[in-house]
Structure formats: C-alpha cells, structure tokens
Amino acid sequence: SEEELEEFAKEVLRRGITIIVNGIRITEVEIFVKVLREILEKR
C-alpha cells in the first residue's frame, strides 16, 4: 500500500544504510527512488 511505501521511505531515510548490490555500493534511498520511479512509470 502507499502507506507502507511511505513508512519504508521514512525508515530508509532514518537509517541511511549502504548495502552492496552486485558488488556496487548503493544506498537504500537510491534503490527506493529507483523502485518508486518504476512503479510510477507502470501506472
């Protein structure tokens, strides 16, 4: 749901943790923004 997305976004921003994806360091915020864009483009 959109509320869950908002909560996830807030949690990500609070933690600001960097994770490893395919050997490249990407912040969770960047991943969230990318996923959010993909979701919005599909609408």
Score class of each variant (00 low, 15 high):
residue 1 S to P: 05
residue 1 S to K: 09
residue 1 S to R: 10
residue 1 S to N: 10
residue 1 S to W: 15
residue 1 S to T: 12
residue 1 S to Y: 14
residue 1 S to A: 08
residue 2 E to H: 12
residue 3 E to P: 07
residue 3 E to I: 10
residue 3 E to T: 13
residue 3 E to L: 14
residue 4 E to K: 14
residue 4 E to Y: 13
residue 4 E to C: 09
residue 4 E to M: 13
residue 4 E to H: 08
residue 4 E to W: 15
residue 5 L to R: 01
residue 5 L to V: 04
residue 5 L to G: 02
residue 5 L to P: 01
residue 6 E to F: 15
residue 6 E to N: 09
residue 6 E to C: 14
residue 7 E to P: 01
residue 8 F to R: 03
residue 9 A to L: 12
residue 9 A to P: 02
residue 9 A to V: 09
residue 9 A to Q: 03
residue 10 K to Y: 09
residue 11 E to K: 09
residue 11 E to R: 11
residue 11 E to F: 04
residue 11 E to S: 10
residue 11 E to D: 11
residue 11 E to V: 04
residue 12 V to S: 03
residue 13 L to Y: 05
residue 13 L to I: 12
residue 13 L to A: 02
residue 13 L to Q: 02
residue 13 L to M: 06
residue 14 R to G: 12
residue 14 R to N: 13
residue 15 R to P: 06
residue 15 R to K: 11
residue 15 R to E: 06
residue 15 R to W: 13
residue 15 R to F: 08
residue 16 G to N: 08
residue 16 G to R: 00
residue 17 I to N: 06
residue 17 I to K: 06
residue 17 I to E: 13
residue 18 T to V: 15
residue 19 I to S: 00
residue 20 I to H: 07
residue 20 I to M: 11
residue 20 I to A: 04
residue 20 I to Y: 11
residue 21 V to K: 04
residue 21 V to A: 04
residue 21 V to Q: 03
residue 21 V to S: 02
residue 21 V to R: 02
residue 23 G to Y: 10
residue 23 G to R: 03
residue 23 G to V: 08
residue 23 G to W: 12
residue 23 G to H: 05
residue 24 I to L: 13
residue 24 I to A: 03
residue 24 I to Y: 07
residue 24 I to V: 11
residue 24 I to N: 04
residue 25 R to V: 14
residue 25 R to D: 06
residue 25 R to C: 09
residue 25 R to Q: 11
residue 25 R to S: 08
residue 26 I to E: 03
residue 26 I to G: 03
residue 26 I to T: 04
residue 26 I to S: 03
residue 26 I to F: 03
residue 27 T to R: 04
residue 27 T to P: 08
residue 27 T to A: 04
residue 28 E to S: 15
residue 28 E to L: 10
residue 28 E to D: 14
residue 28 E to Y: 06
residue 29 V to S: 08
residue 29 V to T: 03
residue 29 V to G: 01
residue 29 V to N: 00
residue 30 E to Y: 09
residue 30 E to R: 05
residue 30 E to N: 09
residue 31 I to W: 10
residue 33 V to N: 01
residue 33 V to T: 02
residue 33 V to H: 00
residue 33 V to P: 00
residue 34 K to I: 06
residue 35 V to A: 05
residue 36 L to W: 05
residue 36 L to Y: 02
residue 36 L to F: 05
residue 37 R to T: 07
residue 37 R to K: 15
residue 38 E to H: 10
residue 38 E to A: 11
residue 39 I to Y: 13
residue 39 I to P: 00
residue 39 I to K: 02
residue 39 I to H: 05
residue 39 I to T: 05
residue 40 L to Q: 03
residue 40 L to Y: 07
residue 41 E to L: 11
residue 41 E to D: 11
residue 41 E to K: 05
residue 42 K to T: 09
residue 42 K to S: 12
residue 42 K to D: 11
residue 42 K to I: 11
residue 42 K to M: 12
residue 43 R to K: 12
residue 43 R to C: 15
residue 43 R to A: 12
residue 43 R to Q: 12
